[in-house]
Amino acid sequence: MKGLLILENGARFEGDLLGTVEGLGELVFNTGMTGYQECFTDPSYEGQILTLTYPLIGNYGANDLFMQNRKPAAAGYVLDQIADHPSNWECKEKITDFIERYHVPCLYNVDTRAVTRMVRTQGVMKAIIVSADRSEEFIQAELAKPLHRDQVERVTTAYPYTYGNGKYQVSLLDCGLKKNILVSLAANDCTVHVFPAHTSAEELLAGNPDGIFLSPGPGDPKDVPYVVDTVKKLIGKRPIFGICLGIQMLATALGGHTFKLPFGHRGSNHPVKDLRTGRVYITSQNHGYAISDEGLPDSIVVTHRSVNDGTIEGIRHKTLPIQAVQYHPEASPGPKDNFYLFAEFTKAMEEFKK
């Protein structure tokens, strides 16, 4: 079935619709060459139509072992070529079967280079994936619908649970958790107690944890003021480590500000410089907002910056055991250069206990 990707600025891109499901979302792009299933199941894409710039998708198939969440989170996918005959020893099914099983809108055989150039020059924007035979009246009605802003509520866990069996007890606030964060913490001798996003500071501290972890997640940090209020109450009580949305909520809780990037950072090869050592790490990223340098509180030290655009990628508190990064050190998908950050977190918890 023929389909269309239609942007709010009027641009239209033709393709083939996989199945009959249509969708509305914020159009973004990711430049990773692998890790498409990890991207499809990353909760940070909730409410977004994800364009993959790499032209060959599905070459190694799909496998539930690669899932980063219990189901896909994105509002739709825009792809170039989809492999009909995947080949890999871990392949369990074709990526088309995976997408259709979860009823995610998907438009393929699209000129994703042109889509990416559009977003790269004009910024992220509202878009729809629809059947090519839809009337103009239907299209305009769909484009007129507002994008929802309750992304975190849609992806957080519905109930608390525990993962791992390590020495350090960690309370994790789930605003859009990826599975490999749990795996990485458990590999660093942590028992992780996962809590829904609405959990209070008192509940997070009730089990006398050794540390607090703030997860990644979708959307604008200004849309979760209740989480920021919780973080304010946690500051100084335990060592805190935050990733992606976690760093934005920490910075906001400490008096900083965030802003929306024109087209975001989404890919698995973003260079980030550790200002403490001068070393450049290759990182996996997925975020549309960043911490502003303007009005940055004196209590915050910037530890990492993006080599591409100079935006803040890591912070530490000057006197408290608080650290956070904007990128994804758990490497799903992406390089494994940054696993050391989890070891630094366990070291902070050990020193705090002493």
Score class of each variant (00 low, 15 high):
351 E>H: 09
180 N>L: 11
113 R>H: 12
42 D>H: 14
96 T>I: 13
307 V>E: 15
272 V>T: 15
313 E>I: 11
69 N>I: 00
318 K>F: 02
249 M>Q: 13
122 Q>L: 09
18 L>K: 05
213 F>R: 09
323 Q>F: 11
273 K>T: 15
313 E>Q: 15
171 S>T: 04
134 R>V: 11
295 G>K: 00
79 L>D: 05
201 A>H: 11
153 E>A: 12
276 R>A: 10
87 S>E: 13
309 D>W: 06
63 N>P: 06
8 E>Y: 06
274 D>T: 02
173 L>Q: 05
6 I>D: 01
60 Y>I: 10
167 K>A: 15
310 G>V: 02
7 L>S: 04
255 G>I: 11
245 L>R: 01
320 L>W: 00
287 H>P: 07
109 N>G: 10
348 A>C: 02
32 G>N: 13
47 G>V: 09
141 A>G: 12
136 E>Y: 02
203 E>L: 10
80 D>C: 15
244 C>M: 14
62 A>P: 01
304 H>K: 11
289 Y>D: 06
191 T>G: 02
87 S>L: 13
190 C>M: 07
235 I>Y: 07
248 Q>E: 10
198 H>A: 10
174 D>M: 01
64 D>H: 05
279 R>V: 12
87 S>H: 13
346 T>E: 04
111 D>N: 15
106 C>Q: 02
82 I>C: 02
334 G>L: 04
316 R>A: 08
278 G>E: 05
115 V>H: 09
86 P>W: 00
330 E>N: 10
176 G>N: 11
47 G>E: 12
260 K>S: 03
305 R>D: 03
277 T>Q: 01
127 A>Y: 03
56 L>N: 07
182 L>H: 08
251 A>T: 14
112 T>E: 03
349 M>I: 01
136 E>C: 06
149 R>C: 08
156 T>E: 06
63 N>H: 06
190 C>F: 04
6 I>M: 05
31 T>G: 08
218 P>R: 01
205 L>M: 10
204 L>M: 07
230 T>G: 14
350 E>D: 14
26 E>M: 05
347 K>V: 00
187 A>P: 00
210 D>I: 09
68 Q>W: 06
279 R>H: 13
8 E>G: 03
198 H>C: 07
204 L>Y: 04
198 H>Q: 09
299 S>P: 07
238 R>P: 03
1 M>R: 15
88 N>W: 12
29 F>I: 00
272 V>H: 04
106 C>L: 04
145 K>F: 07
354 K>E: 12
291 I>V: 15
325 V>A: 11
114 A>W: 03
327 Y>C: 08
17 L>H: 09
331 A>L: 08
305 R>E: 13
39 C>V: 10
155 V>I: 04
228 V>C: 13
